[in-house]
Design a protein around this nucleic acid. Structure first.
Lengths: 337, 337
DNA sequence: AGGCCGACTGTAAACGTTTACCGTTTCCGA
DNA sequence: TCGGAAACGGTAAACGTTTACAGTCGGCCT
């Protein structure tokens, strides 16, 4: 744990100036002999450049941030899996921020942009407050937001048409002959919660089905509470014949409950989730789910950010990923073992 | 995106020297009037300290690294979930490294320690080569290794007794009356692969069961290839009555295959996995799995590292987490609905 | 009243790089 | 042989902090 060698150490040993050392190490044109001396000195000393000094001078950290509510959620995981390699290949390190479903935490991360420890940020805010918008506008580094932001917000944006996603699912259930389609949602004051709530009502209306408040239950976006919410709904609505869940985790909780209540899926109750995470293929029965293209969104966000980091100076861009219904046994149910 | 304010800007505006600004911002004793002027100037300018400059001077980055083979693996995810909050609470950011099951990549990460962009590192190497050991010894920042390292390696180490874990599973299957216990392993040149392979043989011997090479199949540690490996094994050994899988992902692949082959689990073939990830409770039937305490290992590693970062200068410590068998329907099978 | 002490504050150096600028050397053509 | 251009290398400044050191100022003791 001794103090490491610096370019000064190398310069002394190679008998040249620190400027030459720097030039050699950065591949600028240099006489062969100088280069040789510097390189061998560097190698012998086991020199590694100091990133703080480099960042200070160059004003780039070669790091990018990814901020999401909770690393435990498989949706975010699917995104990280796409994002990480993109930045790794481009020479950036990934700094992770799990904001614990806490808007203040998100603001902290945005404030952190000013510290310049990251050159750019991909964020998935759960809610977009006025404070968020102010910080987007004032940000001194490029930001890409996954999720919807108001028109004219000066950041690149990757979104999915979750309205359409909900509609796909509701139509699917309707086509299967289901008429009492319940909906288990997450908190209404989150971006996805609000969007899915509105979309559910719309979709019913488009199909000429009545909107029955009894058919809607709100919990959070996780499996245990999702299960409890589903249980409340099931108890309240005995003739329920389908259940749409605002994400896959909720759907898994619902499947647990339905199994416990000995309601057969999909014969008695068809179940559909959203996000089409890996979990959907693991569940039993395998879960019909609306893919919101998490992987694609992650990749798109990474590419937008990389583009900015490479100096692209263009108007903010909005990329929309189309939702896609993936049907499996929880609604189509050929074989339930 | 204008250039941000620095302490110089603040100093000018407040009419004091940069030293005073720095002192105020760091809470060193200052006359009330000066403090007031500096604080309000800082607030008006929206000052945020530059982390590169701070790191350069203070020689700490307030970042720690976590390096694992692949973020997609739920075991690592369980660890991150424990590690992240520990460091967040202590004021450190988490830098993620996914090394793609590539030893050279791991070495790169270790070399990166010299860049001083992280103050410490938690790593889960898939194999520990001589080069790893050299770099551990030469490292200029504390390292915690999750997984086994040779005696005397100068790093903190968190391990689990996977030998014992395998034994627990084999004994369990044996107690259930199974005698043809197959084993689907990952690559033998990885730390876990090698350990589990040896442990399987040992466990059989302890129980007086013969070691039959036909009962062992090697693939990788993921679901698709795990499934294929399981398929090869099943085809080769018609009287198979139990299948131990080296991790849960492999077990999921095996379950897929068994379902396709219409072999009933656990009636015909009992299946057990290892790691006891979230997936085990999701699988159908729910998967008996040996918990290797991923969460505990993550937390222990984080705490060991934090201890070092807080200046603890002590001999390398080894923390061992006890494995624990978690039985579920894939071996005990009361109700397979 | 002079000297001293304590409480602040300012000056300047340092952290390890990159890079603008300028001086030196080399080489070529006339 | 000499002039000048090209190629290279060194000096020093700069990035934004922290901090050792020295200076200033007021007040108190003798």
């Amino acid at each position: 744990m001794t103090e490491g060698p610096t370019i000064t150490t190398i310069a002394r040993r190679a008998g040249v100036s620190i400027a030459s050392v720097s030039r050699v190490l950065n591949g600028l044109p240099t006489k062969a002999e100088t280069e040789r001396r510097v390189m061998s000195a560097a190698r012998e000393l086991g020199y590694v450049p100091n990133s703080a000094a480099r960042s200070l001078k160059s004003r780039r950290s070669n790091q990018v941030g990814f901020a999401m509510a909770d690393i435990g959620n498989p949706v975010y995981l699917a995104m990280i899996r796409e994002i990480q390699p993109v930045f790794k290949a481009a020479g950036y390190r990934l700094v992770l921020h799990s904001t614990n479903v806490d808007a203040a935490d998100e603001i902290d991360v945005l404030r952190g942009l000013g510290e310049r420890y990251i050159d750019g940020l991909i964020m998935i805010p759960l809610r977009v407050t006025d404070e968020h918008l102010e910080m987007f506008a004032a940000a001194r580094a490029p930001i890409v937001i996954i999720g919807s932001v108001p028109e004219g917000t000066p950041v690149d944006n990757v979104r999915t048409d979750s309205r359409k996603g909900v509609r796909l699912a509701v139509e699917h259930l309707h086509q299967l002959g289901r008429r009492r389609i319940g909906f288990v949602n997450g908190p209404l004051d989150t971006v996805p919660g609000a969007a899915r709530s509105a979309a559910y009502a719309e979709a019913l209306e488009a199909l000429g089905l009545p909107y029955d408040p009894d058919l809607v239950e709100v919990g959070d976006f996780y499996r245990p509470e999702g299960g409890r919410a589903a249980a409340r709904l099931i108890e309240r609505v005995p003739d329920l014949d389908a259940l749409l869940c605002a994400n896959d985790l909720i759907a898994l909780g619902a499947l647990d409950v339905l199994r416990r209540e000995r309601l057969r899926v999909p014969e008695q109750v068809a179940v559909a989730g959203m996000d089409d995470t890996d979990l959907a293929t693991l569940a039993w029965p395998p879960l019909t789910s609306v893919s919101l293209g998490s992987a694609e969104r992650g990749r798109a966000a990474a590419e937008l950010l990389l583009d900015r980091l490479n100096g692209a100076d263009r108007a903010p861009r909005v990329v929309t990923v189309e939702p896609r219904l993936v049907t499996r046994a929880s609604t189509m149910g050929e074989e339930t073992s």
